[in-house]
Amino acid sequence: MDNKKRTLIQAAAALLQNAHISGFFTGRIYDGSLKTVCVPGLNCYSCPGALGACPVGSLQNAVSAWKFRFPAYVLGLLLFFGAALGRVICGFLCPFGFLQDLLYRVPSPAKLRTFRGDDKLRYVKYAVLLAMVLVLPFVFRGTPFFCKYVCPSGTLSGIWLAAADSRLRGLLGWIFTWKALVLIAILTASVVICRPFCRYLCPLGAFYALFSRVSAVRLRVAGDRCVGCGQCAGVCPMAVNPVTSCNSPECIRCGKCVGSCPHGAISFTFFSKPVSVSPLAGKTNHTKNAE
């Protein structure tokens, strides 16, 4: 996958999900019927431009009301996104992922692909999903713990709304200060580490990661073409080795490995049918593929 193409898709997706442009100037959020549907990526529904509902916020809200009814609608939407696309959403459609990708392009003295303890820290996002999105909102009904104490997308929305509305500015207190510190930490880390929020904290990424091996869109490495040169592992921003684990839960399906393979060994597949191969490769033959 061409990186420029992916950047264009990410920009278009971010714009489409935040196409209520007048909201950015008036500080008024969109209140139309499109908000009955959750967007696939992390995009706060209080963002002045948001046209859809935030899946994580909606899930916490639905879990809070679980005593009365099973949250079928929101879980169904999330299940659909996960089963159809999985973490392709992280790589192509998530506005906050796009922001982190842009920040990672900022030059810095060091860029860390991985470090000691990186693999253990990645489990934290599953704990965030379980504790802050599912268990705590269920036990302490009415409090969306992830949104309230962590979500950097919500903090960005708050900054924008507070800038447009002096009444909101007057209400900002210690929770906002805490969330602003979390946001600053994430944005600063994004310059050095590729997608630190997606790697360690995002509950939506954790949910979609559960579908990595069974989503309709997957990656495939053709064993008869792979020469083990390691180029794919070298370019992976999430420090995954596609040859040994092409459908790793940590893979955000950015497609850099597909674009880097000189032998066309890696391809995106849709229900196991190849849909793209490396532009560096010649004619392709997918007779002996393994997922």
């Binding site: 959020i29 529904y45 209080s46 906002f176 805490w178």
Partner: peptide, 25 residues
């Protein structure tokens, strides 16, 4: 099933109001 039970309306009701928790208030 969720839409038949009107759960999409609950999603809408939450999404069209500014979420004070989300923005840090």
């Amino acid at each position: 099933a969720g839409a038949a039970a009107g759960q999409h309306v609950q999603v809408l009701a939450k999404a069209i109001r500014i979420c004070l928790e989300c923005i840090g208030i």
